[in-house]
């Protein structure tokens, strides 16, 4: 019998995706694909277009050209709210939480579209515990620390039981212990089958948890491979010029 490998299901495919803002080409002909269950990191110097790619995947910006395929379905022209309901979630770079509302109110808003009312309170409790903020009580979110807000947003993103989680700089502004916890959290979520695509600048963090890495530079894909390949790639080291 011929050795036929069942192709691994692709959770996300970006096909020559581009984005222009007025006169600026933020992303150009960017193609990338992710297997189901993959833990991939998107890295690159500031301004390389990583967050723009995220926003196009989530639907915050429409792509100027190209295709985006999620779980086998072309979602290029589908609205962001529909994408969320299809199983995509995002933690934004600048905490996308409702600052004037309380912790539990935030969780409720994130969860109520996906969790039946009877199980809502229980599920919120579970998620809050998962990200380790259960001892905070129910403060107004603007009074929470930056790290706590990040974790809250992750909990909110998980409320929909997504198949793809986008994390934009999950370790930003966190101390070493907090970063450690976040790394464990992300790894354990991925082990349970959640496909995760994240952006990070902290290379220790990336090295610790990523399977696959895509490197962006000036809006284009610069390099791609496993974490070991990328870390040892001369050209990648050059474009970072001194970053660890």
């Amino acid at each position: 019998m011929a050795n036929m490998e069942t192709p691994k299901e692709k959770i996300l495919i970006l096909d020559k995706v581009s984005k222009q803002f007025g006169g600026i080409q933020a992303v150009e002909d960017f193609s990338m694909s992710m297997d189901k269950g993959e833990l991939r990191c998107l890295i690159g110097p500031n301004g390389a277009g990583k967050t723009t790619v995220f926003k196009m995947v989530m639907g915050v910006y429409p792509a100027s050209s190209g295709r985006i395929v999620f779980q086998g379905e072309d979602i290029t022209s589908i609205s962001a709210s529909k994408r969320a309901r299809k199983g995509m979630s995002i933690k934004m770079q600048v905490p996308g939480v409702y600052e004037e509302l309380t912790l539990r109110e935030n969780m409720r808003i994130a969860a109520e579209n996906y969790v039946p009312k009877k199980q809502l309170a229980e599920e919120i409790d579970r998620l809050i515990e998962l990200v380790h903020i259960q001892d905070l009580g129910n403060p107004q979110v603007k009074n929470m620390s930056h790290g706590q807000q990040q974790w809250l947003e992750i909990a909110m993103a998980l409320a929909s039981n997504p198949s793809l989680l986008l994390l934009d700089e999950p370790a930003a502004g966190l101390g070493p212990e907090e970063t450690e916890f976040t790394a464990e959290l992300v790894t354990s979520l991925n082990k349970q089958g959640l496909s995760i695509l994240f952006i990070e600048h902290d290379m220790n963090f990336v090295r610790k948890i990523a399977d696959q890495v895509t490197v962006m530079y000036y809006g284009k894909k610069f390099a791609e491979g496993s974490i070991d390949e990328i870390v040892n790639d001369e050209r990648v080291i050059q474009i970072y010029l001194g970053n660890s």
Binding site: S81, I90, G96, Y98, E99, L101, I109, N113, Y114
Partner: peptide, 16 residues
């Protein structure tokens, strides 16, 4: 409330 606090963010939680 979600729409009031941040329309954009609420879209990303599945709200139309």
């Amino acid at each position: 409330f979600g729409v009031r606090e941040s329309k954009q963010r609420s879209e990303l939680f599945g709200y139309k």
